[in-house]
């Protein structure tokens, strides 16, 4: 791991929604290669907005976001798609195509590497199909390759989503509340999967979480947001138990314990 090389940089980033809600308020944040960053904060604190700004699923109102030194705010067309290709994302609701097979869903992660017409005719290379099966085995679901996605449980779907994300051969993995709709056991599996990607493949992982205890267990760095502002940023070694009261304003005890 190359500690200290920035891979995601937010410079003075602001986001105001058309209805006037402030999503992000002057965010300055640099995430380095190989970090496992957990972002904590209440619902509506801007966690999702921050992640979605990083791959420009959301546009920001002002400021600059650099991915590996390249601006994603001004990127257009092919250039934007190529930046996005390096940033995988998993979601709270998994976002699989439920009626398609697991294999097709995983290959969906690869479409950015092909010209449109080739993907429409299903002309994925044998190597990529092989890789799809291998990625599924990595999350211990190898035998589900030809099942329909909606036949799988939530935890399994999330792991298929991780396999799909890996098809991008990403440098960065964004995870937006990846375990919010999972039970405690599958939560551990999914978090362990993310940790493995971080340690074995050196992928930079940025995860939004509600759970402070999970944050302390997995993160190498914890970032706190409140009302769109960055209010907390510490390496895991420096995190104190009392710190989170500041982020949660001492109001949401049950969220902390979750």
């Amino acid at each position: 791991m190359q500690e200290g090389t920035p891979i995601i940089e937010f410079n003075d980033v602001n986001k105001v929604y058309p209805n006037g809600t402030v999503g992000l308020d002057n965010i300055n944040l640099t995430i380095n290669k190989g970090e496992f960053v957990v972002i904590v904060g209440l619902s509506g604190a801007g966690k999702s907005t921050l992640l979605r700004a990083a791959n420009r699923l959301h546009d920001v109102s002002s400021g600059e976001i650099l991915i590996d030194g390249q601006s994603i705010v001004t990127a257009k067309g092919k250039q934007l798609r190529e930046v996005r290709r390096n940033i995988a994302m998993i979601f709270q609701n998994f976002n699989l195509v439920k009626r398609s097979t697991v294999e097709k869903n995983i290959l969906n992660g690869r479409v950015g590497y092909y010209p449109t017409w080739k993907t429409i005719f299903g002309l994925f290379s044998a190597a990529d199909k092989q890789q799809a099966a291998a990625n599924l085995q990595r999350v211990n679901l190898g035998e589900k390759l030809y099942s329909r996605a909606d036949e799988l449980s939530g935890g399994q779907q999330q792991r298929v989503a991780i396999a799909r994300a890996l098809m991008q051969e990403p440098k960065i993995m964004l995870a937006d509340e990846p375990i919010a709709s999972l039970d405690p056991r599958t939560t551990v599996m999914v978090m362990d999967d993310l940790k493995k990607l971080n340690e074995e493949l050196g992928i930079t992982v940025v995860v939004n979480l509600h759970s402070v205890s999970l944050a302390k267990q997995y993160a190498s760095r914890v970032v706190g947001l409140r009302a769109g502002k960055l209010v907390y940023d510490k390496q895991i070694g420096d995190v104190q138990d009392g710190d989170f009261d500041e982020i949660y304003d001492g109001k949401n005890q049950e969220v902390k314990e979750a």
Partner: peptide
């Protein structure tokens, strides 16, 4: 469900690919 559209867009898919892989199967 708009979720798969978001997922495909995040993976760097073109608009046509998004329609083909995330919209039509649904």
């Amino acid at each position: 469900d708009m979720g798969p559209i978001e997922a495909l867009t995040a993976a760097g898919a073109t608009k046509t690919q998004v329609v083909w892989f995330a919209v039509l199967p649904q």
